[in-house]
Design a protein around this nucleic acid. Structure first.
Lengths: 332, 332
DNA sequence: CTGAAAGCGCTAACAA
DNA sequence: TTGTTAGCGCTTTCAG
């Protein structure tokens, strides 16, 4: 069928192991090297990684699991993971499971049968980490990003959600706002709970906390939009708002525009993640910004090291998000 | 090492071929089926796709080549390709080559050695399609998306760039604008040339064409930003603007905001791709919208069919982009 | 319907 | 250094 190492060996008048050695960077006599290179070019040889992987039990690919590819935070992370890995010759096998109705566990099995050397899980479904059993039992290093799960045998990378949310909320309090709302996600989700926690801490401390000002935006553009509309209708006294992810921030702003509310003027606003959006809105949005590139790069480097050393130090890494004041918080 | 089909066979007291048959959906005696399933569960068997692929010459993965993962158009396409493919049990191997300094040809080789069953190329570098030689010679079906290349043996999916750009420009002409600028990319790039062409056609036809009103925004946010600033400085007489991709649209709007120019009021504006952005800008942006989901889905379906049939009908498919009037074009 | 056995293309001893 | 050879785990004839 395809041209194999055997064909090259015959063409070059050598044994297969010599060709294999050359292919793997082992020293080969100069004239043989030339002969092999000529044969490879002539026959158009391309290595079969399946045969190699079958032998070596290494695939030089890492699996990436993400709920959906439409999430900008997620794709940004994937990009920086890939950048690090590809420099070492690794490829990434990306699986989104939401749109396909698969579970995380099924996705892990799928990736495992593709012999991935490591796994990156972005935004795991829940704190229950049992879906990673097969991977961990198989000795595959795993890095989880964005949300903590109950496992002490993987590396987890998160941000200081609570602190930065506290800081964002405090900023509005300092500007004199007393009625501050939040649009967040289901509190069973780690990040949503943490971000709500920081918001709550700040408000409770200053005696301004009001349970009624908490809205669930389902982490989606649509949910953020709806939550914003509801908030405007039921609590017009609110003068400050904290929205805790990018998609909901987009939705909330659409709703504000539709209702003719001016950001900064009618409502002080803190959004999440300074992606395309906040660069475009007037006035410039105050935002909490996650260090996505660092998160992805860290994941890639940790995995590369783990693969090379055959072992990985389980740990939880908390990176710091930054707060950009923008111009959307007005003094009362 | 790992648990193999042999272990299952022994555990179930059967031959390996029986287990293999079961695994591949071939009928097996009920009691044997039960025994196999029990053994699989007990031993935690996961199929080794390398061994299978080595035998079958199929990997059930398709390679995706894209310049960079930070491009929203690209990741949206990837998402819908993946959605279609994963429903048939295929995985995607994603390679971005810009950030890693690789060439497209190297990326093709990399993917080929990973035994991908098909290839999707999003936004190829140039019209020179020779980088696909190895893939096509290897009999692998290829779909190219967004930009045409010089090859008659692959499927190419593009949009009606010229027509829709003509329509967008005509819309501003009809509103009474005479001085209409464009921010576009290097005309050596297929889409940039086509979009500029549509713009030019419309303006030439109405006698309003001015070479000086053409700005190169390098297809990037930064480039769009800079081009917008230059345009405002050198040609304040311009009252209408067409920006020909998403990133440059973002950049241009940032620049307008910074300069205190009101969209619609000070400058009529047509952007590209109604992603998060245009939903958020006030007034609602007029945009040319590419059918990204359809493009990705078409690519996935064509490839699935090509793999199943072992042959693919080369063709160029032109899908229609739509034009959304928005509220950013004002009558003069 | 089931079992034995021959490879798929490659790597890694081992011997030369 | 280089050639020979034995598998890696699976599918797939071919008998039974």
């Amino acid at each position: 069928m395809a041209v194999t190492i055997k064909d090259i060996a015959r063409e070059a008048g050598l044994g297969t192991s010599t060709v294999s050695a050359y292919l793997n960077g082992v020293a080969v006599r100069a004239k043989n090297k030339a002969a092999i290179e000529a044969a490879i070019k002539k026959l158009g040889y391309i290595r079969n990684d399946f045969a190699r992987g079958l032998k070596t039990h290494k695939s030089k690919t890492v699996g990436i699991i993400i709920p959906e590819l439409s999430n900008t935070f997620g794709t940004t992370i994937i990009g920086s993971v890939e950048e690090v890995l590809s420099k070492s010759g690794y490829g990434i096998l990306v699986c989104d499971y939401k749109a396909t109705g698969k579970t995380q566990a099924q996705t892990v099995d799928f990736l495992l049968s593709k012999m991935v050397d490591a796994l990156v899980v972005i935004m795991p479904d829940s704190a229950d980490g049992s879906f990673l059993d097969a991977a961990v039992n198989g000795g595959i290093p795993v890095v989880v990003i964005d949300r903590l799960i109950n496992r002490s045998d993987v590396v987890q990378i998160v941000i200081n959600n609570r602190e930065v949310s506290y800081a964002a909320t405090a900023q509005m309090l300092e500007a004199g706002h007393k009625s501050i709302g939040i649009i967040t996600g289901n509190p069973e989700i780690y990040t949503a709970a943490q971000r709500l926690g920081g918001y709550r801490d700040a408000l409770v401390k200053s005696g301004c906390f009001n349970e009624k000002y908490i809205y669930d935006g389902g982490l989606s553009v649509e949910g953020g939009y709806l939550a914003m509309k509801q908030l405007l209708a039921s609590h017009p006294e609110i003068t400050g708002l904290f929205v805790t992810n990018y998609e909901m921030t987009v939705g909330a702003i659409v709703a504000l525009n539709e209702c003719g509310k001016k950001i900064g003027k009618d409502l002080s606003f803190v959004g999440f993640d300074n992606l395309d959006l906040s660069r475009v809105v007037t006035p410039r949005l105050a935002t909490v910004n996650q260090p996505m590139e660092s998160m992805g790069r860290a994941a890639g480097e940790i995995l590369l090291k783990a693969i090379a050393e055959g072992t990985m130090q389980a740990q939880t890494i908390s990176l710091s998000a930054s707060f950009d004041e923008g111009e959307s918080i007005t003094k009362m």
